[in-house]
Each structure stands twice: as C-alpha cells, then as structure tokens.
Nucleic acid binder design. Structure first.
Length: 435
RNA sequence: GUGGAUGUAGCUCAGUUGGUUAGAGCGCCGGAUUGUGAUUCCGGAGGUCGCGGGUUCGAGACCCGUCUUCCACCCCA
C-alpha cells in the first residue's frame, strides 16, 4: 500500500534527532540558567480552553478532536490539540492558585496548527516557550528578551535581533485614527507592512473606514527616528496617556535589558510590529535572524488578561517562544551543526567468531569508562565492517584480530584521517576517552 | 481556506511534435592479494513512470479526478 505521512508532519530519523536534541538541550539549559522551571501539559485541551484566545484566524487553525460515540457522527468536537504553549500555561496558573508568584516556567513541547505547510512551517512543530507569570515588572520582559537572545547565542546565532513594540502604543494610534472599535483589524493591516508596503496598507486602512487625514496621521506617528530614545521620544510626543504608558514600559525594558548584558543594538524599537494574537496587552516582541528570509524564529509579549479568562483572577504574565524548526533550518543553512552522524564515538568491530568475546569485553570496558561505544552486531568480514563504519560515520573504530589479541592490544583507527595505531587495551581506553 | 507549480531506480534528475525491451550520475551489491573504509578499475542488481479513470492502433508524455511535496496569499514559530 502507498504509505505517507499526514501533511505537514515529519519523522525525525536518528541523524535528525541528533540536531533536534542538541537544540532542545541547549535551549533548556539556557532557560534553566535564568531560573525558569520546567512544565509539561497535555497534547490536547478541552476545546473551550483554546477557542477565543487567538483571534478569528487563529481559531480556524486549531486542530479539533471529534467526540467519541454518537457525537462523532454529528461532527461534534469537545477537545483540541494545543495551538501554543501560552494558553495551556494560563490554564495551569488558573488551576493552581498556590503557585508562588512570580512563577517562571519553560516548556518545550510540540504544538499543532491546521495551517497549509510551507517553507519553515509545519502542522506539527516544537516551541520552546518561557514565561514569567505574576508580575507587571518590566524586568520580566527584559528577562524574556535576555534569555531568548542568550539561547540563540548558545546555538551559534549571535546575529539574532529582537523587534520591540507595545500594544498600548498601537491602540493609542488606532484610537487617534478613529478606529477604536476596530483595533484588531487595524493591527492585522499594519502587520502586513513588511510584505505589501505602505501604499497597500493605506488602502486597507481606507477600507476599514479611516479617512485620508487619519491614515496620514497614522504614518506620521509610526515614522520614528533611528535610535531608542529618539524613537520613543517621538512616540511619546504623539500619543495619548494610554500610549505613553507603553512608551514608559519600553524605556524600562530597554534599561533593564542593557543591564542584563544584552547589546542594545540587538533590540530595535519598531512601532509597526503588531503580531496577530489577540491576547497581547503590553509589550510585544519578535525575533528575526539576518540570514535567510525565514520569517521570525520567535516571538512573544505580555498578556495580562489571559489567566483572568480562566479564573477571573487577574494575573499578569509575559512570555516568549522560540520555534526550533526554523532555528534548525538556519543552523543547517549556515553549516553550524556538527557533522558527526552517529551517537557512538567508536565502533568495536568483530574480527571473527573466535575474537567475538574479546571485542565484546573491550566494548564493555569502553562503555564503563564512559565512551559512547557501539559493537558490530551484524555478519561480515572486516572490510564489510569498515564500510559500515564509514557509511554510518563513526569517528573511530577498534579492531581486535588474533595479533592484537595475543599481545593484549587493540588497533584504534581514526576514520577521518585513516591513522591507526596498536595500543595496549588500557591506553586505547584512555585515548578514546579523551578523543 | 484561495491561487500556482511538482511527482520517472534508494537519491538528484534526463526522457525530443505520443511510437519498439525507460536512461545517466551518485548510492547499493559482488570482484580486483581472505586483516582495513572513504580514492581507482571491472562486473551486477534495481523502475506498478504518485494513484485512478479517459483519449488513442499505441501514453512516462495529452485530458479529467485524486493524493504528495513545494511556492505565493492568509496567518504564524
């Protein structure tokens, strides 16, 4: 039978898992270094937990799960696969009022979106999310930005930059333009600026009911000078009190980020950054890499109202997510991934039936010494085993034939250089331990 | 969800206006001193031409449908 994967999903074969685990391990260790605690939640949630949080477009992309029994025949759904890691976190916080605030958690799990796949876009993909819950302090934003950049640094992507804006600034602009009741559509139009340009966005604003003067006013406010302070000063002068709160927050975030050791040219004020998700209330950010037109590799923002949607208890929160699929694509394109294709660092070959136990013992000894060791389990002569080792990409192999066996030696061969030497078993263990 | 491309050996692709047994490179298997891969030489295996219909004396080539992958839109990581 013809067999293939569901659209937008992938198997991760061992060679790919190596890089995925490298990225995940790296990100998790950086998150831990900043004091974030691990959390996992179920793959699926009750459907009402997810709907109404992401906006109309987002809701359409939620993977729904049919009810069991008669409900399924009527097409009814009561559960759905998680769309992101932020809403499940808000649900967890609402259900666990005893959590000591501020609560900092990280979560690296797959999420699902019923999107049409494209380059760097899948229906099942992993997010690395870290959030600070329970404080309105702009230090929380600063930590999110700092930890995300630190994670990308650790992955070998020091060129990552964060664009920063605040929803209150955007709302203030929308209100001034007379679009107070159309804030979300206003944001969606604005978000397209990068792609379709100012003229087309202006035309869409017109369709929303903004007159020419209002549109001109919007561009006037959004056009800011370079540099953090000039940009923020310009916005401050143009906005109402509510918008100025956003400006003040961004000033505090920038100050704290600088004190956390982040180079300030890695954070850019971009008043046109909108982001689609409905739940953001304050600062929003998006992470871009200079190389490759791959879209953003991460994003986030403050969502002070989300927990309250579950518990009625307002709990402020802010978070950021890294998308590892896109990060891996960039790492691959830049050749920044290790070329080793096996987990084991050495393959112990089996010279003959007579020598099998000698090889087995030596492999065991290597493993005890902490060397990642594979023992050849197939059939075949030495030549075949060498070809196998070469194809699999082991850095080293060990050969123990009758000659070596007699003298208590083993041959260690490096497959990259082709160099080999006969060593005593103890020296061989030491040599492989340090290779 | 909308629009556009794509699908031929394990992989990357050729395949002329429809015409005999469908090709190449790489890979794979075997051999070239039976204790040495990756290099070289020789030989070999391997294809329901995505799937299902249709047109035709004849379809890998044309038409319809369907699925896959990819690109753009939408939105996002």
């Amino acid at each position: 039978m013809a067999v293939y994967l569901p659209k937008g999903t992938r198997d991760f074969l061992p060679e790919q898992m190596r890089t995925r685990l490298f990225v995940l391990d790296t990100v998790r260790s950086v998150f831990s270094r900043f004091g974030f605690e691990p959390l996992e939640t179920p793959a699926f949630e009750r459907i009402e937990t997810l709907t109404g949080k992401y906006g109309d477009e987002g809701d359409k992309l939620i993977y729904k799960i049919l009810k069991r029994g008669a409900g399924a025949e009527r097409g009814e759904c009561d559960q759905a696969l998680r769309y992101d890691l932020t809403v499940p976190l808000a649900r967890v916080v609402a259900m666990n009022p005893d959590l000591r605030m501020p609560f900092k958690r990280y979560q690296t799990q797959p999420v699902w979106r019923a999107d049409r796949p494209q380059r760097g876009r899948f229906r099942e993909f992993w997010q690395c999310d870290c959030d600070v819950v329970g404080t309105k302090s702009p230090l929380a934003e600063a930590e999110c930005i700092a930890v995300a950049l630190a994670a990308l640094d650790a992955l070998g992507l020091p060129g990552a930059v964060i664009r920063l804006n605040d929803r209150r600034i955007l709302r203030s602009i929308a209100v001034a333009a007379g679009a107070a009741d159309k804030e979300i559509p206003f944001l969606i139009c604005l978000d397209k600026l990068d792609k379709i340009g100012r003229d087309k966005v202006s035309a869409e604003f017109g369709r929303l009911g903004l007159d020419d003067a209002a549109v001109a006013g919007v561009w006037d406010v959004l056009t800011v000078p370079d540099g953090h302070d000039p940009a923020l000063d310009s916005l401050e002068a143009a906005l109402d009190d509510a918008g100025r709160e956003g400006v003040d927050t961004l000033r505090a975030v920038l100050d704290a980020v600088g004190r956390m050791g982040v180079a300030l040219d890695r954070v850019q004020i971009d008043p046109t950054l909108a982001r689609g998700l409905d739940y953001y209330t304050g600062p929003v950010f998006e992470i871009s890499l200079p190389a490759g037109d791959i879209g953003s590799v991460g994003g986030g923002g403050r969502y002070d109202g989300l927990v309250g949607m579950f518990s009625g208890r307002d709990v402020p929160a802010v978070g950021i997510a890294l998308g590892i699929e896109r990060i891996i694509m960039v790492l691959e394109e830049q050749g920044k991934l290790s070329s080793q294709r096996t987990t084991a660092d050495v393959l112990v070959t089996v010279f003959s039936d007579e020598q099998r136990n000698t090889s087995l013992s030596f492999a065991t000894r290597l493993r005890s010494a902490g060397v990642k060791t594979d023992l050849y389990l197939g059939e075949g002569n030495l030549k075949k085993q060498l070809k196998y080792a070469n194809a699999r990409g082991y850095p080293n192999i060990v050969i123990i034939g009758p000659d070596e066996s007699e003298r208590g030696e083993v041959t260690v061969r490096n497959l990259d250089s082709g160099e080999q030497s006969k060593l005593s078993a103890g020296d061989a263990v030491r040599s492989l331990t340090h290779s």
